[in-house]
Design a protein around this nucleic acid. Sequence first.
DNA 1: TTGAAAGCGCTACCAT
DNA 2: ATGGTAGCGCTTTCAA
Lengths: 331, 331
Amino acid sequence: MNIYDIAERAGVSIATVSRVLNGSPNVSTKTKAKVLGVIEEAGYTPNVFARGLGLNTMKMIGVLCTDVADIFYAKAVSVIENALRQYGYDSLLCSTGKNIEDKQKYIDLLLAKRVDALILIGSIFKEETDNSHIEKAAAKVPTVIINGLIDVPNTYCVTCDEYQAMYDQVIHLNKKGCHDILYLYDVESYSGLQKLNGFKDALKHCGFGVNPKLIAKVDKDMSQIEATVIELLDADIHFSAIIASEDQLAIGAMHALQKKGLRIPEDIPVIGFNNSLLCECAMPKLSSVDNMVETLCNTAVNVLTDVFDGKTVTNKMTLSAKLVERDTFKL
Amino acid sequence: MNIYDIAERAGVSIATVSRVLNGSPNVSTKTKAKVLGVIEEAGYTPNVFARGLGLNTMKMIGVLCTDVADIFYAKAVSVIENALRQYGYDSLLCSTGKNIEDKQKYIDLLLAKRVDALILIGSIFKEETDNSHIEKAAAKVPTVIINGLIDVPNTYCVTCDEYQAMYDQVIHLNKKGCHDILYLYDVESYSGLQKLNGFKDALKHCGFGVNPKLIAKVDKDMSQIEATVIELLDADIHFSAIIASEDQLAIGAMHALQKKGLRIPEDIPVIGFNNSLLCECAMPKLSSVDNMVETLCNTAVNVLTDVFDGKTVTNKMTLSAKLVERDTFKL
DNA sequence: TTGAAAGCGCTACCAT
DNA sequence: ATGGTAGCGCTTTCAA
């Protein structure tokens, strides 16, 4: 069933059918109704490939992250996919893993599928050289980066000010008398580095040195996190609070504290990051910095549609985060 | 840059370029090298729309679930997307929400995009009439359903035997002397119903009646779950164990127990379901039934590729689940 | 308001 | 082994 069949049945030309299909005003109400009737009756759906061939778009956006199984990315993907759909775009999903070559490969794959744009969620890039895959992508289609900052044409960055957020939490803890803060993190993504720097700078600002022993890089693995913290405790390395760059790390740390009979927050307050479902699952419930995934992602999609609409758009937008107080730390 | 440009630059016909592109054996090594060189140099990528138009496929699979933000679906989507990519297929993601009309709408949307197949993860359908959207879909493309069972042509169901798994847990608890078991669940999906029935049947098998007060339907909301369990406790409705159809519900219940000063598992053992990340986050760590998402999803993709390859495939496959023992319950 | 026809860039069949 | 060419089903311009 194609446009020719419809045209024939409706007794008009394919041009007219096409006009009806695309809502052109230059069709008489009568023919329009007639054509619509035939379409309905035949259960006809235009062939998107043919349309794509002519228009050079299939209204699809490539959405990339390291792994959708991750609770944070999952939420982001969910919001993005929904927002895009409102604008009539579908999401071509791609979990790239952390390997940079794979990322490049998958970006190429999506570009080969002729997506209209790319949305990268939390792309990892420590060094400038790592960003070539983004430059290549942006050379072909508008590319928006969520929680990443890069200065490349045709690239739009929507970030959360995690540096400031982390900075603020250290200040808060300091005011409560916590000077020795254990910092837990896992990845050195843009976002990861922002947080780490926020932590360090705040300490300096408070006049305290940065104790490297109190900055622990861990894998996102519960038992490993627990082990790491217990090791520190056993080694009598003193700290009076914990901040983690991710809720999961914070919870791992909480387990360690609890095993050692330390009370949270009385003995050691704990602050997580991302304000994920895990916060509510922890016991006591985890206070966490909300980095605004939802707003971030909706903004990203808005930016993109603005770009499509030819509007002038800022290349960089930053939202501020805020602490959600629960039981492990209160202001 | 199209196939004509390449042909011209390489001094061959477009037919030859096409052959090279599609790995036809009927090309001399020499011309092949020449063409490949030109392609490489020009950075040419075939237009998938044109190809799709001729072949009537763009190697895309529609992947649907109620919401990717859900930790279980996120994992499933992740596995599926990866598996599909191995076979050269991309995933067109769609979070449908629970509304049946929306599902139908989104399925139509994906079908309009001419996806090669549909994978539905945990589609909800209580009554037979609710399945029309699946029938319609299967009439057009092969449809595989993960954790759902339906008898429709061109439909392939891959399920986990959650009925049996739930049944078994009740038996286990009974052997430990727990006869009054509180059952917590949230949705009445196929999967949800399987579990509920497994629970009820096991109780009957043990010679105990099903106490409706000990079967609580709750929202997936921590405070609501806590409140529900605390209410039961306060009303002196006795139970000596808890089983939940989802880890999150189990954790909510644990919070309630802990608030009431009950020890887990000494006073009340707790068993969750899905063996998600949440299990490790709980304190004590949650024993949970692993419903094999990974295997389930990989199997689903295998089934699909077998269908594509014209192999004869079973319409129904069932995997068995197994309890992962942690701290809240041990055999 | 409507129709005719020229692409869009590929694949595959038929020749050679 | 290679080339010519007819579709694939649509959009869009140009004429009427």
